[in-house]
Structure formats: C-alpha cells, structure tokens
Design a protein around this nucleic acid. Structure first.
Lengths: 160, 160
DNA sequence: TCTGAAATCTCTCTAGC
DNA sequence: GCTAGAGAGATTTCAGA
C-alpha cells in the first residue's frame, strides 16, 4: 500500500466497490463483481488499485467491546499548559502507545485534544488517568465525559 | 451473527485471533492458523464462533477520508432543550439517517451528545448544520470543534 | 488503458477420526 | 483437537475493444 497523498478519481464502479467493501469487508470477489456489474477480473484489479493507492487503508474485523470485557468508554478533553511544541510532540507520542486510546484528535475549541478511550471499568479508567495521562508533562486540564449510550458507531465514509 | 448479549470467555487462541483479525481483516485462514499455532480447521471454527457470538460484529474496509473527498471532520457537542424522551428518540432516529455522522454518543458532562462528522468542506458542513442538525426539534446548544489533526484513529479494541 | 474469458493455483469449509 | 479432499474462490494470462 502506498502512502496516502493526493485525492484519487473514482468512477461509479469504484464508488460502489468502496461502499460495499466498507459494509462487507469479506464479500467474495465474485459476488462483489456481480453486484457492481463487472467481471471478477476487472473487479479484482480495481480493489487492488484502491488498496495500492491508499484509498483502502486496510481491512479489519470490528469487535464488540462489551463482549470482550471493555464495556466502558469515555470522551476525554485534554488541554496542555502551553502550546509549546515539545509538549505537543511528547503528548502525541505517548498517546500512540496507549491501546485503550482508540482515537485522538487535535481540535479547535476549548480543548487541545479529544480522546476516545475504551476500557474495562472505572477502576481501570482511574489507573489510566493516574498511571498514563497524568504522568504526561504539560497537561493543564482533563475533562472526562463517559459514554452513557452508543447511538451510532460507523466506520463507512460516505462516498460522493 | 447472533445479537450481542453477555460476555464470552476467550482463551489465548481466541485472543490472538481477534488481535490479528482486527489488524488484518483479510488474512487467509491458513496464515491465521499458522500464526496462532492451530490447524486451519480449528482456527476456522473459532473465527466462525466469534462471528456467531457477535464478538466480531463484521468485517470492513477502512477508507481514507481525505482521498475520497471528505477531508474535513468535526466533533460536535449537542445539548437538547429538555431531556424529554420524545426529543431524545427523535434526535437519535434522525442522526442514524445521516451518513456524514459516523459516531454519536450520549455522554455525561455538559453536552448530551457528542457526534463525529466527516464531510467535504466548510460549505458542506454549513449545509449539514442548517439542513439537518438545526432542523431537529429540541436542540438547545450546538458547539462545533473542528479536527485540526488526526493523531490516532484505531478500530482495534485491546484484548485483555 | 480499459475490458472479459479462461486457465491455474490457493484457500475454504465439510467430513471423518 | 487433527488431517484430507472436493469444491469454491483468488489471481494471472491473454486477447479484444
């Protein structure tokens, strides 16, 4: 897979391939080809090209957190003391190491970063804060919002 | 696939299967079996059982938004006027219809809901607000935080 | 440069132990 | 849990639009 760079031109076939593969990542090539109205060979070449260009980052199994002992999740707003570049780089590098942090975004607004943390229970979350997040230099504010209910959790990017 | 219900017991083999399939959703059964040290048939039965029990929700291709014309994303905090059940149900049903809303959580804290929206550009975001979000009844406050940078975006739930 | 048909090779999935 | 094998699917080759 190449590095993600500039936008790619997608025709109608590519769009339908992406839409289907985002919903059914393990559909067979034959069935995919039939649904989009191409031969299996042509369809297969397009899927490979989409992987090669980085449009398809990867394929993944999506796991239900509550069934593997990680039923608690939180959205954590983090502000750094100063917007010094060292703090930021250090913060981001450490966040990348923490598997319970599934998503981390630098955002506009009051917080500098918003994290989504998926974890076992409150005791584990307490340890995450004390042993990981609070040990980072330059943290000014941390605000934890716990997820009461999951309304929607989708990975499919709208195509067109 | 069955409905997600109670937690499942995972032995070491299942854990390794899940870890690998979360990273490489299209690894062949033969290679998966080899990496975890089981015969292909035994491995295959475990994968099917994990799908059947709902631990594996589904497989998906993960697409790079910036390469398919959706480079802008926002975290949107929404508060409803009253916590009347009708408002909440209506809000959630409408949110489920909007493909640009990839994630939506009911949370503790100041906001009632936090949304992650992936979209084309600011003009499209403006339309999303005016034509979709602001047309919902009972919205009290909406605060949009735009994503400046994607530090981490992971789908893999930590196993054990 | 794109397509589809066909040949071939590999893997999936069932059966049986 | 394992091995084996038929059938299904993935991948390559080749020729045509």
């Amino acid at each position: 897979m190449k590095e993600a760079t500039k936008e790619v031109t997608l025709d109608r076939h590519d769009q339908r391939i992406l839409t289907l593969l985002q919903q059914q990542g393990r559909i067979t090539n034959n069935e995919l080809a039939e649904q989009i109205g191409l031969s299996p060979a042509a369809c297969w070449r397009r899927v490979k090209a989409l992987e090669e260009s980085g449009v398809i980052r990867r394929f993944a199994a999506l796991v239900e957190p509550s069934l593997v002992g990680q039923p608690l999740s939180a959205l954590v707003m983090v502000t750094l003391v100063r917007h010094h570049i060292d703090n930021t780089v250090e913060f981001e590098n450490r966040i990348l190491q923490y598997p319970e942090v599934l998503q981390c975004y630098a955002t506009t607004g009051n917080a500098d970063f918003v994290l989504r943390v998926v974890i076992e229970d409150m005791a584990a979350y307490d340890r995450f804060l004390n042993e990981k997040l609070f040990t980072l230099d330059g943290i000014s504010q941390v605000s934890s919002n716990f997820v009461l209910r999951n309304i929607k959790e989708e990975t499919a990017i709208p195509i067109r």
